[in-house]
């Protein structure tokens, strides 16, 4: 099953003002709060990994007959009333949880639940299956929510440096043995040993590989993941780690402005080409400034640059296949 198949089908399930206009990140600030309604279907299926192995997944999908991982991320504003309806199409119990904001409690197999909440603090949040932690989250029942400051469309928090576009980078690591255990309702008993590494559910397909340039499977060409901009197109990257491994996020081309770490605003903004992203729901917000690469000679303002994790085991798939892991590209256009 291909991820983009589900995205095409998804707009109907997301009938809501904030999602008008296509991309889930298109965003207009408001001086007032509003109501936002979302619907997810907990479904399952198999996704073929870069080495050809099919692995079992569960997802917060956009329709009941699809599988989508991660679930569609969404943007709301401080004070909005967010209503999320979850239809559990599986026979296993799951939940919908955002730490310190909302917890649906158990949603039994075959049942539906609606939760409502008003996020009060701007920031980046992981929603996930909090039932039977961490297993539901690890088999990809997760997604991301951004809460914008009231009335602001260009800041992470009041007073933060500004940006002109924003993206979610949701990372995960996949141990197929655990996925198989979880499918069979068994508690994994082996050490977590990931063999696949994803960003927004995808992994790299370098030039020459089957699927290269296909945005449905190539993380370097997925429009929600790859970063495109001109000099000055300061880009907020909301980085969330659904998995268990500690990551070192590395951008080429520009250092990042490191704004937040695990929900905390950093007291001063550091410029880093490596930003740590903790395992187990770690979050970091950074701005990629899209300045002309400072060390180019002669000076230039265009080019393609890599983003990859520097814990390089994550760049592999199935124990080899370098560049088929969690990476994407940044395009200075």
């Amino acid at each position: 099953m291909k991820r983009r198949d589900f995205l095409k089908a998804s707009s109907a399930g997301f009938a809501s003002t904030l999602l008008a206009g296509g991309g889930f990140l298109s965003w207009k600030s408001r001086a007032y709060a509003t109501n936002v309604a979302l619907t997810y279907y907990i479904t399952h299926g198999w996704i073929t990994q870069p080495d050809g192995v099919s692995v079992y997944f569960r997802g917060y999908s956009s329709s009941s007959n699809s599988l989508q991982v991660p679930g569609n991320s969404f943007v709301v504003q401080q004070g909005d009333t967010v209503t999320v309806t979850i239809h559990n199409r599986l026979t296993t119990t799951h939940s919908f949880k955002i730490d310190e904001i909302v917890d649906s409690g158990p949603i039994a197999g075959g049942s539906s639940t609606t939760v409502q909440f008003q996020p009060s603090t701007a920031g980046s949040y992981l929603f996930y299956d909090g039932h039977n932690e961490p297993y539901g989250r690890l088999v990809d029942l997760h997604g991301a929510m951004a809460v914008m400051p009231l009335g602001l469309d260009n800041r992470v928090y009041v007073g933060s440096p500004t940006f002109v576009q924003q993206k979610f980078w949701v990372f995960n690591q996949i141990d197929p043995v655990w996925h198989s255990n979880i499918r069979n309702r068994a508690i994994p008993s082996t050490p977590f040993t990931p063999r696949y590494f994803t960003i927004n559910g995808l992994s790299g397909r370098p030039p020459g590989a089957p699927g290269h340039v296909d945005p449905a499977i190539d993380a370097m060409h997925d429009h929600e993941t790859a970063v495109h901009g001109h000099v000055g197109d300061r880009t907020l990257l909301r980085m969330l780690n659904a998995g268990l491994a500690t990551h070192a996020v590395h951008t080429h081309g520009n250092h990042m402005e490191w704004l937040t770490s695990n929900g905390q605003i950093r007291p001063v903004v550091w410029l880093k080409d490596i930003v740590p992203l903790d395992g187990n729901k770690g979050v970091a917000d950074v701005i990629f400034p899209f300045e002309a690469p400072p060390d180019a000679w002669p000076p230039t303002s265009t080019g393609i640059y890599a983003m990859h994790l520097h814990d390089e085991m994550t760049q592999t798939a199935g124990g080899g296949l370098y560049m088929f892991g969690a990476l994407t590209d940044i395009y200075f256009e």
Partner: peptide, 16 residues
């Protein structure tokens, strides 16, 4: 050259 942000053809990244 890790940390150096050069023109992309001087960055040493094979796939790019």
């Amino acid at each position: 050259h890790h940390g150096i942000e050069p023109e992309f053809r001087s960055d040493g990244v094979g796939h790019i």
